[in-house]
Simulated assay, not measured.
Amino acid sequence: MAQIELANDQVRIDADIVAKAFRIDPRDLQNRMREGTITSRFEQGEGEDAGKVRLTFFSEDRKVRITADEGGNVLNCSAIPYLRPGTQEGPATEAADDT
Rank of each mutant, 00 (worst) to 15 (best):
C77S: 02
N76D: 06
G72L: 10
I66G: 07
D9R: 02
I80M: 06
D61N: 14
T56M: 09
D14I: 06
D61T: 13
L6C: 09
A79W: 00
E46A: 05
P81E: 10
K52D: 03
K20R: 04
N8C: 15
A7W: 07
F57V: 04
Q3G: 09
A2E: 12
R12M: 09
E5D: 07
E60P: 13
D97R: 07
S78A: 11
G51T: 01
T99K: 07
G71R: 14
G72W: 13
I4D: 13
I38Q: 12
Q10A: 08
M33K: 04
E89T: 05
I13Q: 15
I4F: 11
D49W: 02
D25A: 03
P91Q: 15
N73A: 06
D16G: 12
T67D: 11
A15W: 07
G71L: 15
F57H: 05
E94M: 05
T37N: 08
E5R: 12
T87W: 12
A19Q: 02
L6E: 11
A21T: 00
T67S: 14
T67V: 15
D49Q: 03
T67E: 14
T93V: 08
R34G: 01
M33V: 04
Q30V: 01
D69I: 05
N76S: 09
F42L: 14
N73F: 04
Q10N: 06
G36F: 06
D98R: 09
P85R: 05
Q88G: 09
T93F: 12
G72Y: 12
G51P: 00
E94C: 00
L29T: 09
I38E: 11
D49F: 03
A2Q: 14
G90E: 10
F58R: 10
K63I: 05
I13A: 15
V11G: 02
E70V: 13
V74D: 12
D25T: 00
A92Y: 01
R62Y: 08
F57R: 03
R27F: 10
I4G: 12
F58V: 07
S78L: 11
A15S: 13
R12P: 01
L55F: 04
Q44S: 15
A50V: 02
F58Q: 06
S78R: 14
D28I: 11
R27H: 12
A21S: 10
R23W: 03
A92M: 03
D49E: 02
K20S: 08
A68I: 14
E48D: 03
E35N: 13
K52C: 04
E60G: 15
E70P: 08
K52N: 04
I24N: 09
G86W: 10
T37V: 09
I80Y: 06
G72Q: 09
E48N: 01
L83A: 00
P26D: 02
A95M: 00
G90W: 13
T87P: 02
E48C: 01
